[in-house]
């Protein structure tokens, strides 16, 4: 326990106070997809299979953590006028890095995700976290924030991907689950309209579980 206390001091009350709030905000109370409704373009486009959704979620976690860390490290040295250009440069570096690795070691997936990995550069979640959080906060806290937001995005994507693949093809990760005479795969779920239905329903359920926003009534 004594060791824990020391750790808390060195990271500025991370384990008790701000760190937990940051994690909870990113993944739950301020979930980027379900509450802020950001980055839905990729969430609609790549969620027709669970596997695609998982890889896309991993990509966003990687980019969000990496860019948050470096934006935060450089925050005191970055000239204010070109801070956004600097953020985009850092984000783009991480996105291209992930894209290259995917092309080298996971070619099949790279083909299926097509341009959407590259489009993470323009994902509002990444840029938003760099601008709103990493510019004002120390590196470790920024990593946590990137992790929480990336995780919040990835989980919603996985939920949508799971149900779209299950209802649309009767499979999960390529394994047949719903089959036989009693279930006919509902093709609309793997097409664009299915993405809108699934995302809408997930956002509705998420908001219902979370309860009304206390700030809205003020």
């Amino acid at each position: 326990m004594a060791g824990d206390q020391g750790g808390c001091k060195s990271c500025g009350g991370l384990c008790g106070g701000k760190g937990l709030v940051t994690l909870k905000d990113g993944a739950w109370t301020q979930n980027p997809l379900a509450i802020q409704v950001l980055g839905i373009c990729s969430a609609l486009a790549v969620t027709n299979k669970l596997e695609n959704s998982l890889v896309m979620g991993a990509a966003l976690i990687f980019v969000c953590v990496g860019s948050n860390l470096f934006v935060s490290l450089l925050r005191k040295h970055t000239p204010h006028r070109i801070r956004m250009i600097a953020e985009v440069a850092i984000i783009a570096t991480f996105v291209i890095l992930f894209d290259q690795l995917l092309k080298a070691f996971y070619w099949e997936m790279s083909k299926q995700l097509g341009p959407y990995v590259g489009l993470i550069i323009t994902n509002c979640i990444v840029m938003g976290r760099a601008e709103a959080f990493a510019l004002q906060n120390p590196p470790i806290l920024s990593i946590l924030d990137g992790l929480a937001n990336g995780f919040g995005y990835a989980v919603i994507l996985a939920i949508i991907g799971f149900f779209r693949e299950l209802l649309g093809t009767g499979k999960v990760m390529g394994h047949e689950i719903l089959s036989g005479n009693w279930y006919t795969p509902n093709q609309i779920m793997i097409l664009a309209p299915g993405a809108f239905f699934a995302l809408g329903i997930v956002i509705a359920i998420f908001n219902a579980l979370k309860g009304p926003d206390p700030q809205e009534n003020k």
Binding site: L74, H77, T78, P79, R81, I82, I85, A86, A89, I90, A92, T93, I96, L97, Q100, L101
Partner: peptide, 19 residues
């Protein structure tokens, strides 16, 4: 500002070239 942009740009470019 110019120097910062130059250094950041070069670093990112070098990283990506290596990758």
């Amino acid at each position: 500002t110019l120097l910062y942009a130059f250094v950041l740009g070069t670093t990112c470019a070098l990283l990506l070239t290596a990758a």
